[in-house]
Design a protein around this nucleic acid. Sequence first.
DNA 1: CGGGCTCTTGATACGCCTCAATGCCCGTGG
DNA 2: CCACGGGCATTGAGGCGTATCAAGAGCCCG
Lengths: 254, 254
Amino acid sequence: MSLAPIGTLTIPRMPVVIPLRTTTVCARCDQRAVSVCAAIPDEDLHHLAAAATTMLVPMGHAFIGEGDSANSFYNITHGTARLFKLLPDGRRQITGFAGPGTFLGLAAHDTYSFGAEALEPVRLCRFSRSGLTDLMEDFPALEQRLLQVACSELVMAQEKMLLLGRKTARERLATFLIGRVSQGAHCPHGQTQTTTLALPMSRSDIADYLGLTIETVSRTLSKLKAEGLIALPNASEVQLRDPAALHAIASGEG
Amino acid sequence: MSLAPIGTLTIPRMPVVIPLRTTTVCARCDQRAVSVCAAIPDEDLHHLAAAATTMLVPMGHAFIGEGDSANSFYNITHGTARLFKLLPDGRRQITGFAGPGTFLGLAAHDTYSFGAEALEPVRLCRFSRSGLTDLMEDFPALEQRLLQVACSELVMAQEKMLLLGRKTARERLATFLIGRVSQGAHCPHGQTQTTTLALPMSRSDIADYLGLTIETVSRTLSKLKAEGLIALPNASEVQLRDPAALHAIASGEG
DNA sequence: CGGGCTCTTGATACGCCTCAATGCCCGTGG
DNA sequence: CCACGGGCATTGAGGCGTATCAAGAGCCCG
């Protein structure tokens, strides 16, 4: 198997996705309500299931390669993936983290303009390009839904441009943390008043997401901690002690 | 009229668009072939014309306000506009320059997530939200076209994130110049071998587009000029003396 | 309990920003 | 037609924020 160096890590190249079974059960999918699949009415679910294939991607493995021909679309049902673009010398920009309910593949013409790797073990539904096209013809609501999704992505992309082009490291981290809350990254055992949220990604991922280095991410988080705005129980968890203040910083008023 | 300070300039707020006439002639529109309107067949053009209103926006004036309720969609037929987002303290990120054929308004939910101002005198077609919705119901091809446009915008947005997050000033300028070529910003009187392209935007606009300052933009252009990669006949024109080298720099190999 | 990893922290360097002055272009008015 | 003035662009000097280089701390897992 060929290996592609990503920072200090080597990520196995495709094909690495593991087909689980060809009969996908959409009726029992707990992500259907929040995903594009909600556009298909209950009585027609068998059409959807026929077009989809459930797959499992091991942690750390790629399932979309930047530049590969875009033959498939994906819908994540479990786990988180990082989406990214690379420069020839290895510089990486993570364009987003895709969690359950996320539809992937819109940002593609003939080839994918981004890569995708599983941050955690990822389960997803795969649709062939032709299969999805057929579905869209039969269910116009699906196409409307995809347009909504694309518009929503576009709004987030512009927000991200503002962050990368004009915000300071401190503002970027605050924006990232506040954004995680609205994305529903709450920690399962978060019981207290203060919002506890999970960071399934490494500092390196956060850095490449925010256009910074791991050192700056670490330093900035430490500073926010010293100021009492956040707490860091461990490297993969953050407690927001003062969400209002963080929000102010994120929007450029801090 | 209320004024909003943008840098050293004051931009008149809406309403500033000037309705030209209610009867829009789509059949004679020279932008139809390249715009979303191409999705409407010739024999149904009267439906399109009925839904559209032609408008003229004076140079420097705003026609979309960030945060305004998104009641309209626009299709630019002449001139160039800048699209941008602002931070409370005035920091600005220009997300894109919209030229003839560009469809505007996709990146909107209930309110616009960006502002738009005419860089040059701009002529555009305005569609009401309901009017466009009706058109999409009658002409599914229009919705497909909008989805294509959205996907294309998404690809460009991700490219821009890579630029803002990971490229140097030199690489950003090279990317900008090369990008202008493919956007067809060739100078009308560009007759020589070397590509001459027009820069209708100010250095300030370029800086806010690339996440830099005007000084860095100016310095970097001067350096590229000193190296013989470009020529600067005047402030609003650039000649690409070595497009190949610029392309290499833009993609991170320079 | 050790090895290897990520994360953190420190010292220094560099690229871009900020502040400031000069130059250029172009429209205006004498 | 040319002198003047204002705005934008260019160029220079210095400072700041983040990157880079380097070392140590914490954590996970065998």
